[in-house]
Design a protein around this nucleic acid. Sequence first.
RNA 1: GUGGGUGUAGCUCAGUUGGCAGAGCACCGGGUUGUGGCCCCGGUUGUCGAGGGUUCAAGCCCCUUCACUCACCCCA
Length: 417
Amino acid sequence: MIQLIRGFKDILPGEVEFWQFIEKQTASLFENFGFKDIRIPVMERTELFSRSIGEATDIVEKEMYTFADRKGDLITLRPEATASIVRAYIQHRLYAADPVQKLYTIGPMFRRERPQKGRYRQFYQIDAEVFGVSSPLMDAQIMFLLMTLFARLSVTDCTAKINSLGCPNCRPAFTAGLSRLLTEKADALCEDCSRRSARNPLRVLDCKVPACKAAMADAPSILDYLCPDCRGHFDSVMRHLALLGVPFELDKRLVRGLDYYTRTAFEIQTTLLGAQSAIAGGGRYDGLVKALGGPDIPAIGFAIGVDRLAEIAAQHHPDLSAKPKIFIAALGDASLTLAFEWVSKLAAAGIHAEMDMAGRSLKSQMKQADRLGAKHVLISGDAELEKGQVLLRDMATKDQVPVPVKDLVTEMQRRFA
RNA sequence: GUGGGUGUAGCUCAGUUGGCAGAGCACCGGGUUGUGGCCCCGGUUGUCGAGGGUUCAAGCCCCUUCACUCACCCCA
């Protein structure tokens, strides 16, 4: 037996129904908000990701599936979708007709992390991006859209955490201040934090080690450093979130793992999934389109963890599997042939119909119909056929009525279509 | 990458100081010549994760390894 790759998984019938449900709700809601579906490849040139996500990030440094193709070009299985969508936006000059474009996609992403609950090496994201809108109204609307989607999916136990990361004008001052503090307190920090100090200084603010907490007690907040534009933008986001009734919490330590974010950063968290509390995250990245060679156009986007959503949805919706309208139980060769013809034609006509082809006992076939959850069973045996009819049984009420064999498919269509 | 837990039937799991591998569920058949759910009877199902070692004898003890899982880290 050949094992599947670590961190990868199959989605089997019984679970896949939740995925379909999520995808349907997403498509209809997103289209109501003006988003259009876009399909992008699962592989790109490695350079696209290293340039957009950031050379020094965990994702690029140690989590990407990167290899040389037969010609020697370095390619990477996408660890996220934003880079590809931005690339497509620039490459096809989608901004030419209208710089404002709202795009979404659903698909697998790949990161080589250690698997755990709610974290896989091939995982699925619903990803959406809005180009050409710098207004804070869009930031607020996007979070409203997310909360609305989650409510539809019965994921009620979630809160929005928001922060502002500033912009190239104001962030450097904050980063410098923080770095200065970290250098001063270097001796007091735990091993992890001394490592983080250089790479990801903001993370130190989040450390649970008491000594680090004490050392960071008077650490600066990014919010105190925001320039007037960023401050105004952030205040407006919060004002409009309140207007739409989106519950949110300010989280001054919220940071995104990707370098390209500016200003608004947010995460939707839930308590239902153990350590992997984030079911969606995103933010504004006003400089990325230009950095990747496009025009200077602002953008904001987010990603939803579908695996995590499906796990939660499974707790609410017990059975979404399709139930047959009709099961045909056949006794004897003549009936078997007729049942074969009827089931095939009913299914083709859009009526979910099933049968047993193994020639088993009536009792066994009834059991099978019950297990499948069939609404009705057509019983066809020699005794009925002699009279030119079959029996239609309602499985819930046990009522049985004869139905003529002639034009049976048409009659069933009339009753159950 | 680091740590903890777990690997026995399709599923959930028992398995005593080392002594013939088990139960429930599921599945198949019967009880009812041709009628589902409840009940009763019978039956099928095993690389005990893998490899090596100790022993007369290993599911159990020792070593190695793999997988799953939870957490750190990071994130969706």
